[in-house]
Amino acid sequence: MGMIWKGLQMTLIISVGAAALGMLIGTAIALIKLQPKTRAFIAPKAICDVYVTVIRGTPMALQLFIMAFVVFAIRGFPQVVTAIIAFGLNSGAYVSENIRAGILSVDKGQSEACRALGMSSAFTMLRIVVPQGMKNVIPAIGNELVALIKETSIVSMIGMFDLTMAANVIGSGQHLANYAAPMFVVALFYLAIVYLLTLGIKLIERRLRKSEKK
């Protein structure tokens, strides 16, 4: 049981870290991509486009390998950080598209009305567009988080001790039951995490949809 506990901790640390990093990167990229096409934004927009295309077009496992064995192939560099950065970068690309779609889904009239009242564009974004876009973004982000948590299981491929690795290590022996049992237990753990997350997201969504209630 100690091993599973250790693995669970590792999975959670990577998930939470990567999710936070992903949100940050995703929001930044979405905001850059939403800027009008002026001279100042041509280069940043191009960089963001390339980034999103490359990350979404290559397998996650490969990105993790590159991070672990090429970019951060430094002796003594904590593997957890490597994993968090790799998953964060990956998640950021997907999240950015979700956020962008959410912000675009808000009716243009809303921001126009706020600008016509003499409010600045930043204030309009912060108080009118983002709160309304959030409602549409939350389900997509929830999806992305669920996928992220399950995807962290591939860190066992670079030798990190997460939940999946724990199941592998514990499960040894001649009998089927000996290695089947820990795997099912670990599966239940994943299920529990994802279930709790889904519940939380539902709660947030319900609160945000308050204004639509008749």
Binding site: L117, G118, P131
Partner: peptide, 29 residues
């Protein structure tokens, strides 16, 4: 922005802020 505060605008599609109550809509600006 300063000039627009002196020009009220009313739209065809109302454009009340959907995420705020009526009172908040009026007091925001």
């Amino acid at each position: 922005n300063v000039q627009r505060r002196r020009m009220g605008m009313v739209f065809q599609q109302f454009n009340l802020f959907g995420n705020m109550s009526v009172l908040k809509n009026i007091t925001l600006a």
